[in-house]
Amino acid sequence: MENKKLNAAGAPLKIGVLALQGAFIEHCNMLRKLDVEPIEIRRRVDFSDNLDGLIIPGGESTVMAKLLYELELLNPIKDAIANGLPTFGTCAGLILLSRQIEGAGEGAFPVLDVVTRRNAYGRQLGSFKTTSQFHGIGEIEMVFIRAPYVSEVYGQARVLAVVNEKVVAVEQGKVIAVAFHPELTEDTRLHEYFVKMIVNCQL
């Protein structure tokens, strides 16, 4: 326990990982590398109000949106994010956090002032890997799998990364969302960035 990262109350930091579908285990493994204990959120009972943060993983956003609703997780999580729960979304997570999805209304947790385009690079043959600058971190490896990008940024959202002239990472308040998959690489810096944000906003 002494190695665990602590929150402001002196308890080990607890970060929930939405585990309905997709690559959630990869996020859990990243958190463990940072000495943070992940809590898998599969049911209503798994989502308590003592979480310090939440990760929404990659996967199929349509599947997650449906399961969030049917497993009665949608409103509690929506309220928690609106009330300032630090949240980190990757790929499908970015879609769910967008105020507007092209051709599909708003995301499940519409907190980011962005318009997001799903499958923006086409089918699997359009998936790619690149390295690019990430604001406040430097050059990082970015893996895009049938990825979305942000087609419009307005209001309070701040751009964190741009690839091929498209916005692929944004931050607004305590929410970070990226179109790519840091959890599929060996680089933990983006997860560290999120953990630091949690610790800083508890100070």
Partner: peptide, 30 residues
């Protein structure tokens, strides 16, 4: 990247469909 796409399907159900209509039913069902 192809192995990565398979990772994104984890925890999910892949359904056989024979028509666009069935495909929509499958997508709506999750």
């Amino acid at each position: 990247l192809n192995k990565n796409l398979a990772q994104m399907l984890k925890g999910g159900v892949i359904m056989d469909v024979t028509t666009p209509q069935q495909a929509k039913v499958a997508e709506a069902a999750g």
